[in-house]
C-alpha cells in the first residue's frame, strides 16, 4: 500500500462510480472513473465542475453514503487508516462518529426530535456530559442565529435557511478532523454566509481537512485552498 505523509487526512484512488437503474431497462449512468485525489490537514479542496458533473455523487461516496464500484477511500481515523470502500458498516459508523463530518444539501433528521437535542446528541455519543453537550450546542445555534425560541422544536417546520443552519450546526458542533460540505451556504443570507465562512476557516486553522462544493464564487474565494475538477475524471470515463 501507498505510504502517506503525516499531513494526509483522506486519499481517494481508483475511485469509480456508475449507477445502473435496473427497473428502467438497466440504463447505466457513468459518473466518474479512476478518481485520485488527496486532502491534507488545514486545506479546503473545492470540487469544481458544472451542475450534473458528479460533485455531489463524489462527496456522498467519500462519506460512504454512495457505494463506488471500484477504488479506495483511505481515511485517517485516529491513529489508524480505514478504507471506507472495504470497511464494515460498524467501522464506518465509528469513522462517521469521530472523524468524518458531512453537511448535506438538505436537512434529513430523525422526526420529532428537538433541534437542541439533534445538535447535542452526537456529543453525548462521544462521551460528553449532557450539560457540556447542551452548552456547546447552544453556542453553535446562537452563532448561526437560530432564535432561541426554536431550540425546543423539531426543525421540520423551519424555513429553508434555518434548516440549513441547523444542518451546519449539527456538524460544526463537533471538531471533526475531516469535513465534507455540500453547498453549505446555498440558501443563506449574507450575515449567515459570513458566519459559515468563518466556521470553515476556523476548522482549517485547527488542522481539519475540508472537501466542499460551493456555488458562490465569493465563498469559494474566501475558503478555498485549491480546486479539484470533477470533469477531469469524467472525461477519463
Amino acid at each position: 500500500m501507498t505510504q502517506f505523509d503525516d499531513t494526509v487526512m483522506l486519499h481517494a484512488q481508483g475511485l469509480s462510480k456508475h449507477f445502473v437503474l435496473h427497473n428502467q431497462g438497466g440504463v447505466k449512468i457513468d459518473v466518474f472513473e479512476k478518481v485520485e485525489f488527496t486532502a491534507r490537514q488545514g486545506e479546503c479542496v473545492i470540487l469544481a465542475g458544472p451542475s450534473g458533473s458528479g460533485k455531489s455523487t463524489l462527496l456522498r461516496s467519500l462519506y460512504a453514503n454512495y457505494k463506488p464500484q471500484a477504488g479506495s477511500i483511505y481515511v485517517r481515523h485516529g491513529e489508524a487508516w480505514v478504507d471506507l470502500c472495504a470497511a464494515r458498516p460498524f467501522q464506518i459508523m465509528e469513522v462517521r462518529r469521530d472523524t468524518l463530518g458531512y453537511v448535506s444539501q438538505f436537512l434529513r433528521v430523525i422526526p420529532r426530535v428537538a433541534t437542541l437535542d439533534l445538535v447535542s446528541e452526537p456529543l453525548i455519543g462521544q462521551g460528553l456530559t449532557e450539560e457540556a453537550a447542551r452548552k456547546r450546542a447552544e453556542t453553535i445555534l446562537a452563532r448561526l442565529r437560530i432564535p432561541e425560541a426554536l431550540w425546543s422544536l423539531p426543525p421540520s417546520t423551519f424555513s429553508g435557511g434555518e434548516q440549513q443552519r441547523v444542518n451546519i450546526a449539527m456538524t460544526f458542533v463537533q471538531d471533526y478532523p475531516i469535513l465534507l460540505l455540500d453547498e453549505p451556504t446555498a440558501s443563506l443570507d449574507k450575515d449567515n454566509r459570513e458566519t459559515v465562512i468563518a466556521l470553515i476557516n476556523e476548522a482549517k486553522g485547527r488542522g481539519a481537512a475540508i472537501i466542499g462544493i460551493f456555488h458562490d464564487a465569493e465563498v469559494r474565494a474566501a475558503v478555498g485552498t485549491r480546486s479539484y475538477d470533477v470533469t477531469e475524471a469524467r472525461q477519463a470515463a
Binding site: 445502473v20 437503474l21 435496473h22 456522498r60 453514503n65 454512495y66 457505494k67 464506518i92
Partner: peptide, 16 residues
C-alpha cells in the same frame, strides 16, 4: 450494508 447506503444507493434490482 450500511442502512443509509443501501437505501440511498441500492444496488440490487429488488432493493431498487
Amino acid at each position: 450494508g450500511l442502512t443509509d447506503q443501501v437505501l440511498d444507493d441500492p444496488q440490487h434490482p429488488y432493493t431498487q
